[in-house]
């Protein structure tokens, strides 16, 4: 699948969000889009999956079965979880009793079986996100695009989604995703797309080691303020006075420098995550 000289803008007088972007995607490839907020990541994802038509350029050889998980899934739909998944299953090309069967199985797998008959409007944000993930997986997509799909999911559902992505990749599905956690799917070899200033730069380097985990003690205020540093994904306090920070590989030196500038901080361990 190829993107040929794509350009997108949201209004005649608005600046181009994407300019003259040409990219290639291969079957069974995992792609991670990175870049700052408002840099065009979400727009690029929607163009790739076909939900958004570019103003210029064309997308060639897009697979027939495609699925998309949006950043925020709306609760303002007049269906129950199960009904919505059945409708989308049919839109994905399933017939007969298959959509209902798969909808039930998918909700069960994501730990939302108890909410099958609940109207979407009454679901919590996290459960709603599970429905959004389920609608993308019911149709066995050949192209799966995930826009921060993990955000709002509980730990178990995140693990299920990780596993589902790995399964889809094995089946030859192309997966493109954005996530703020740099360790997300870090175990899988991925091509990185840096999105910013209207351009996309593909970067194979750094696809092995995606992030480092820094364990430190003695910091006044614990983990406070660390999540705001550039490149920082997950921040946790596994024990009192112990802070664990996950940092994208490109930012690890800067974060370490910042941490060590504080004389009370003691860095216990720096570990690469693959």
């Amino acid at each position: 699948m190829r993107l040929h000289r794509i350009a997108v803008r949201y209004g005649r007088r608005d600046p181009w969000v994407l300019r003259d972007v040409s990219l290639e995607l291969h079957q069974g490839q995992l792609l991670r889009a990175t870049g700052g907020n408002g840099g065009g990541k979400s727009t690029l994802l929607r163009v790739v999956v076909g939900a958004c038509e570019p103003n210029r350029g064309a997308v060639h050889e897009r697979p027939a079965r495609r699925a998309y998980v949006p950043e925020r899934f709306p609760a303002a739909l007049p269906f129950t979880s199960h009904d919505y998944l059945c409708h989308l299953g049919r839109v994905h090309g399933l017939h007969g009793a298959e959509p209902a069967r798969r909808a039930t199985a998918m909700l069960e797998r994501l730990g939302a079986a108890a909410f099958a008959g609940t109207p979407l409007a009454e679901l919590s944000k996290g459960t709603c996100q599970k429905v959004a993930v389920a609608q993308a997986l019911v149709g066995d997509p050949e192209l799966l695009v995930l826009d921060e799909a993990w955000t709002g999911l509980d730990q178990d559902a995140r693990a299920v989604l990780d596993q589902a992505v790995a399964e889809r990749l094995e089946q030859g599905c192309t997966v493109l995703f954005v996530d703020h956690d740099p360790t997300r799917l870090a175990a899988l070899p991925a091509l990185r797309w840096h999105v910013g200033d209207g351009t996309v730069r593909a970067d194979e380097a750094g696809s092995g080691t995606a992030a480092v985990v820094i364990t430190l003690t003695g910091r006044l205020g614990g983990a406070k303020g660390l999540a705001e540093l550039p490149g920082v994904g997950a921040v946790g306090e596994p024990a009192p006075d112990t802070v664990r920070v996950t940092v994208g590989i490109r930012y690890s030196d800067d974060v370490l420098r910042t941490l060590l500038a504080d004389s009370t901080v003691h860095v216990e361990q720096v570990e690469a995550v693959r």
Binding site: R46, V49, G50, A51, C52, E53, R65, R66, A67, Y68, V69, P70, E71, R72, F73, P74, A76, L77, L88, V91, H92, A132, Q135, A136, G139, V145
Partner: peptide
Amino acid sequence: GEPAAARACASAAAGP
């Protein structure tokens, strides 16, 4: 009538 994100999901599957 369809919220934008839901429209995007359906459009991804079937084409806008």
